[in-house]
Nucleic acid binder design. Structure first.
Length: 858
RNA sequence: GCCCGGGUGGCGGAAUGGUAGACGCUGGGGACUUAAAAUCCCCUGGCUGCAAGGCCAUGUGGGUUCGAGCCCCACCCCGGGCACCA
């Protein structure tokens, strides 16, 4: 059946076919089908209150075209969608309105779902996931427990932004020019207890795994840079007081050790206090206080001018026992390496600058070339000034010198080879309400010991923290007690103490906890009977938005499984996505975090492969009409709903793809959509007449002209190839070319029109379905397969050869495909346009490119 | 500063080292129509020429090549990422 409307009434046609697909569950992915599988994944959206942005349908249309084409080609396609629905905006809305964030979130999801369905995407809606659904986040919590049990989660004091006026913790994005974005209040750094995931334990494997994935090079490079592997050595400098141990530094240039003339510790370095002599105490303390008030950002951004203070202490350089002054300066960061460096101003620009500023000595240990203008010399060259009684590096290049000195240091037990990473552990907690609660309670040491005796799911090393002299131990909820759901709260406002709003829910927070079952009753009740009940306080932090998005691609495989994140069969059958499409803004964090979790799950034997995303593609951003980023304040935002109302979803889909290469950043042009809309109407007219009946030019036994027939087969080939290569813009222009040719044919073979519709179906599925049924009477184009081209029809008997004289186009000639170079020379000489450029001068050389051109050099 | 990506008509863009500007938009002219919309046809990079044609032209300047938008070198501009990472 079809709508049978007389003209191209997309407002009738599109809803009709959308409900047809829904009723017939046309896009259901079949678990374990014998067909080859194809899993094409979109980055699922955060359902914001402002509805779908035009950027969403861009990537979603691309994957939908691929999904539909793959289905036509006989694949069992998994093409799912869901909602990344925890997050700050919903919480802020809740604070403002007092309504539960879940209510707002569900409203937004309804809007998003309606908008996405209106675009005709072929998602398997039976597999929809929602990260805020307790059946989903039960498994997010479960994965966290696996991390916890395996020593990959711990708590630590970490500096965060605190706004005293708002009495809350703010994220970096909520701070504008050192003030809170809301209310413009001052903010300060404050140390708060945080959950941290040990992603650094996977640094090497996260780096290594990049070799095996088909990703954009730029994204791989970004992740590489983020992980920031560097090879070098850890070197120990002895201190005067042996009880302080050694001052440990990391360096990538151990070959320059003889040039170390001072050392620098980060202001937060634990040895600063002990190494500061009384005479320097005041200055050092003042410097540290100043540094503490700056964020990492300010320290790098604003403090371009070096500064530092001397501690009064010295350390001994292991290569020559020279006394080296120890300074404190904020150009050394506690978070990298050991938080202390050996400074070699002769070979390091930062150290050079600092040494000049404070008139510290400079020793060159690499010989610069004679024309070197001065300053730090960081290039390769022969070592100089680098020998002691036992070892000499002099004359060696950097690489050999490094190897030699490291062996010497290792023999002397003064240092070791060391690989260091820029990557830091992942701060995994937020002081927020609207996130997954941690399935953790805090208990006393003695209760923890008792738990350890009865539970097998505790980490080898207990996770604990000390506060006001009391040490608390982290006890996980047993699997069976999951999910731990968010309690209803009276207020979504922050607690005011730096904890989340959950800290005010005393009945939820302070509990009697059953260590075996995970059951809980409020602590105000009597202690229930039985040995397993202990006094506990729940964790009040919640997980960040990344948590739910770290593994959603696995849940799609088996979304209703109540016993596992997905069954082993589903994980094996569907494997990982064959293609993942999403914005480049997630190039580092989301993709790195998800890879980390996947590798952990791989190590635990949960998933069968080490990398989650084999092939990745970033769609480009669609800019406003004015060529700038779309934003409400600029008033250049394009709303998909408006476009669908005016031109239909098929036109929008087609135009989004026609705009330019998928990966390019490109401006929206409101006039441009007219062109593709006209094209669709043209397709309609070629199929149906004004009465809505089949166009009388379409005949079962009609024949196309040879040229158009060839074009048809070329188009079938090109559209197929272009879809696989994600070159949708050129696929569409090829279809336009074909249609322009078909329009000029006196009669149209029914089979040719069927091919056209099948090629168009992935791009403009509603129109294709409507015309297909009206032309053919068959149920749905989705069962019609993909057209095949005849390779024999792609070769032609005649070809057009370009004639060049001295590399310039002078004419062309159409000849048989078997023409020889000698014949072409004769044809060229006889060619009226060409002959005059040769005009009797002898031909020195001819270059013949088969089927292309002949170039005569005279 | 470092690392990427990109500069092609009035606009979006197309072009295995082989006729630059496909396809679409815009603009101009025409047909159909009482008129309009829709549709169809022609033209639409610049300079020059009555015309046939010629010359110039893919950010700029060099180079390789019979031939360069495409490869190499230098520079300019735009976009993205990182940024005292030892």
């Amino acid at each position: 059946m079809a709508t049978n409307c007389k003209d191209y009434d997309f407002l009738k046609i599109e809803p009709y076919w959308q409900s047809f697909w829904e009723k017939t569950k046309a896009f259901r992915a079949v678990d374990g089908s014998a067909k080859p599988k194809y899993y094409v994944l979109d980055m699922f959206p955060y359902p914001s209150g402002s509805g779908l942005h035009i950027g969403h349908p861009e990537g979603y249309t691309a994957t939908d075209i691929l999904a539909r084409c793959k289905r036509a080609r006989g694949f069992n396609v998994l093409h799912p969608i869901g909602w990344d629905a925890f997050g700050l905006p919903a919480e802020q809305h809740a604070v403002k309105t007092g309504t539960h964030p879940a209510a707002n979130t569900q409203n937004n999801i309804v809007t998003f779902r309606r908008q996405i369905k209106a675009l005709g995407f072929s998602y398997d809606w039976d597999r929809e996931v929602d990260t805020t659904d307790l059946k989903y986040f039960r498994w997010t919590q479960w994965i966290f427990l696996q991390l916890f049990q395996n020593g990959l989660a711990y708590v630590d004091e970490r500096p965060v932004w605190w706004c005293p006026e708002l009495r809350t913790v703010l994220s970096n994005e909520e701070i504008v020019d050192g003030k809170s974005e809301v209310g413009d209040y001052p903010v300060e750094r404050r140390n708060l207890r945080q959950w941290v995931l040990r992603i650094t334990a996977y640094a090497e494997r996260l780096l290594d795994g990049l070799k095996d994935v088909d990703w954009p090079d730029s994204t791989k490079r970004m992740q590489e840079a983020w992980i920031g592997r560097s090879e070098g050595a850890e070197v120990l400098f002895k201190l005067k007081k042996p009880e302080l141990g050694d001052l440990k530094v990391f360096t990538t240039r151990p070959d320059t050790l003889f040039g170390c003339t001072y050392m620098v510790m980060a202001p937060e370095h634990p040895l600063v206090d002990a190494l500061t002599l009384p005479a320097h105490r005041g200055e050092v303390d003042a410097y540290r206080r100043k540094a503490a008030g700056k964020s990492d950002l300010e320290r790098t951004d604003l403090a371009k001018d070096k500064s530092g203070v001397f501690t009064g202490s010295y350390a001994l350089n292991p290569v020559n026992d020279k006394r080296v002054p120890v300074w404190v300066a904020d150009y050394v960061l506690m978070g990298y390496g050991t938080g202390a460096i050996m400074a070699v101003p002769g070979q390091d620009e930062r150290d050079w600058e600092f040494a000049k500023l404070y008139q510290l000595p400079i020793i060159r240990t690499v010989q610069p070339p004679p024309d070197f203008p001065g300053g730090a010399f960081v290039e390769d060259g022969p070592a100089i000034n680098s020998r002691n009684a036992e070892i000499s590096l002099n004359g060696l290049r950097i690489a050999e010198a490094k190897t030699k000195i490291i062996s010497w240091l290792e023999a002397k037990k003064s240092g070791t080879r060391r690989i260091n990473y820029k990557l830091r552990d992942w701060l995994f907690s937020r002081q927020r309400y609207w996130g997954e609660p941690f399935p953790i309670v805090w208990v006393s040491e003695s209760d923890y010991r008792r738990a350890a005796a009865m539970r097998k799911d505790l980490p080898a090393q207990p996770v604990k923290f000390t506060e006001n002299g009391l040490t608390h131990f982290a006890l996980p909820l047993p699997d069976a007690a999951l999910p731990l759901v968010l309690p209803e709260v009276n207020s979504y406002l922050p607690s005011g103490t730096g904890e989340s709003p959950l800290a005010n829910e005393t009945a939820w927070l302070e509990i009697w906890f059953n260590m075996e079952t995970g059951d809980a009753v409020p602590a105000t009740n009597y202690r229930p009977a039985g040995d397993s009940w202990v006094r506990a306080r729940r964790e009040t932090n919640t997980m960040p938005q990344w948590a739910g998005s770290c593994w959603y691609y696995l849940r799609y495989l088996d979304p209703r499984n109540a016993g596992a994140i997905a069954s082993p069969e589903a994980l094996k059958y569907w494997d990982v996505p064959d293609l993942y499409v999403g914005g480049a803004e997630h190039a580092v964090l989301h993709l790195l975090y998800a890879r980390f979790w996947h590798k952990v799950l791989f190590d635990l034997g949960v998933v069968p492969q080490a990398e989650p995303f084999k092939k990745l593609f970033h769609q480009g951003i669609i800019l406003g009409e004015d060529g700038t980023k779309m934003s409400k304040s600029r008033g250049n935002v394009v709303n998909p709903d408006d476009i669908i109302r005016a031109y239909g979803a098929d036109s929008l889909r087609l135009y989004l793809m026609f705009l330019g290469p998928l990966e390019a950043m490109k401006p929206w042009n409101p006039k441009g959509i007219e062109g593709v809309h006209r094209f669709l109407r043209k397709v309609w007219r070629e199929c149906l007449n004004e009465e809505g009946a089949v166009n009388s030019r379409i005949l079962s036994d009609a024949r196309l002209s040879a040229a158009t027939d060839k074009l048809l087969h070329e188009t079938i080939k090109k559209v197929g190839d272009d879809i696989e290569g994600l070159h949708f813009n050129t696929a569409i222009s090829q279809m336009m070319i074909l249609l322009n040719a078909l329009q000029k044919e006196p009669t149209l073979p029914r089979a040719a029109m069927r091919d056209v519709l099948r090629l168009l179906a992935p791009f403009a599925p509603h129109l294709a379905e409507e015309l297909w049924t009206r032309l053919d009477g068959a149920e749905s184009i989705m069962t019609a397969g993909w057209p095949e081209f005849d390779p024999a029809k792609l070769v032609t008997s005649t070809i057009t050869i370009v004639i060049q004289v001295n590399g310039k186009y002078r004419g062309d000639v159409t000849v048989g495909a078997d023409v020889t170079a000698a014949e072409l020379v004769q044809l060229a000489l006889a060619h009226p346009k060409v002959a005059r450029f040769i005009a009797g001068t002898p031909i020195k050389r001819t270059i013949y490119v088969k089927n292309r051109l002949i170039n005569l050099l005279v």
